[in-house]
Computed example of a mutant assay.
Amino acid sequence: MRSDLIRLFQTPPQACGYYPERSAQNLLIDPHQPDLAGLYGAALEQGFRRAGDQLYLPRCSACQACIPTRIEVAAFRPDRSQRRNLRDNADVRISLQPAQYNQERFELYARYLRWRHPDGGMDEAEPEDFTHFLRADWSPTWFMEFRLAGELIAVAVTDICEQGLSAVYTFYAPEHASRGLGTLAVLQQVELARQRELAWVYLGFWIAGHPKMDYKRRFQPLQLRGSHGWKPMLPTTGKD
């Protein structure tokens, strides 16, 4: 991706969503850039992430905590806890659906935000928030649905590009949190990428030691993107 052909913008400082005492800034690809769909795969390769119709990369002057990650699909093997997750969720039915708004999905999304982000500015979602945050007209987005006895219990927002699959966002029913539906979603996205012969599942940003982000290191072999490109993360030792 060549910045001399693509307009990039730097956002002004804003509150960091992970560390309240810090400020954050993002590098944005011009949302009016022609052929964003064609640029998307190359942007993922450079560490960018999609939120709504924006492709962004954290670019904070005093912090480099957010590190792009991706799973090497061909080499991935579930660890013991992940295999247990698959067994425990064998009764969940999974399907890939067009990325469209409906009331059932919105109500699940709103319930998840109220539970996950109370008083965080995201807990009073409106229908337009659902659409603007989860999809864009140009993005190759699908909704991976998870149903238990017919009830929708989770949705994994999944972008399928030629270069790889991007795990954009997952929301699920709070009362089923003990099932580990976030882990299940990643495992199923890896399997979808394997079926489609895609090399990578892009997981977004990893923050070492952060309770909301550190789970990503369990999906080995994981690669991290730094100033010299993608490099393997060395797995930590301990029980799997």
Rank of each mutant, 00 (worst) to 15 (best):
A74F: 06
M213Y: 06
Q10C: 12
H176F: 04
D79T: 08
T183Y: 00
D214Q: 05
G41E: 11
T11W: 01
S166R: 07
P58H: 11
R116M: 13
A43V: 02
F76T: 09
Q188D: 04
D214I: 07
D159L: 03
E45D: 12
R111V: 07
H228M: 11
D4R: 08
N85V: 11
D214E: 10
G204S: 06
Y172H: 05
R179Q: 02
F143K: 10
R111C: 13
L187G: 06
G204A: 07
A65E: 12
E162F: 03
N89D: 06
E151V: 10
A193E: 05
R83S: 12
T237W: 01
R49C: 11
C161N: 05
F133Q: 05
Y172R: 00
H117T: 03
A125R: 07
V157R: 09
C66W: 04
R83W: 06
T131S: 15
E126F: 02
D123T: 09
G180Q: 09
Q220I: 12
P68W: 04
G164S: 09
P127W: 03
R49V: 04
Q54S: 11
L86H: 07
V190C: 08
P140H: 13
I6R: 14
F9M: 13
G226L: 14
D137I: 02
D88P: 01
I29D: 15
Q82M: 14
V190D: 10
Q10F: 03
E151H: 11
P174A: 06
C161M: 00
R135H: 06
W230V: 01
R217Y: 00
Y101Q: 05
Q82N: 08
R22Q: 13
R147L: 05
R93H: 06
L55S: 08
V186N: 00
P98I: 10
Q10M: 14
V155A: 07
T237S: 10
L224W: 01
P140C: 09
R59K: 14
R7W: 02
V190P: 01
Q223K: 03
R2S: 06
A193Y: 00
P13S: 14
C60R: 02
W206L: 13
L184H: 00
P58E: 12
L44Q: 04
G238T: 02
T170E: 08
I6E: 03
Y18T: 10
D4I: 03
Q54F: 12
A75T: 02
Q103R: 12
P232N: 11
L39P: 08
L96H: 05
G41R: 10
A167E: 04
S23F: 04
W206R: 05
Q97K: 09
R77F: 10
V157I: 10
I6W: 07
R147I: 01
W115D: 15
T237N: 09
D137Y: 06
R80D: 10
G182Q: 04
S81A: 15
S178W: 03
T183P: 03
E145A: 13
E145R: 06
E126I: 04
Y56K: 02
R194K: 12
L108H: 09
L28I: 15
A65T: 01
P98R: 08
P12A: 13
A125D: 12
Q97D: 05
A199V: 02
A90G: 02
Y18I: 02
M122L: 07
R105G: 15
G41V: 12
Y18R: 10
T237P: 01
D91R: 12
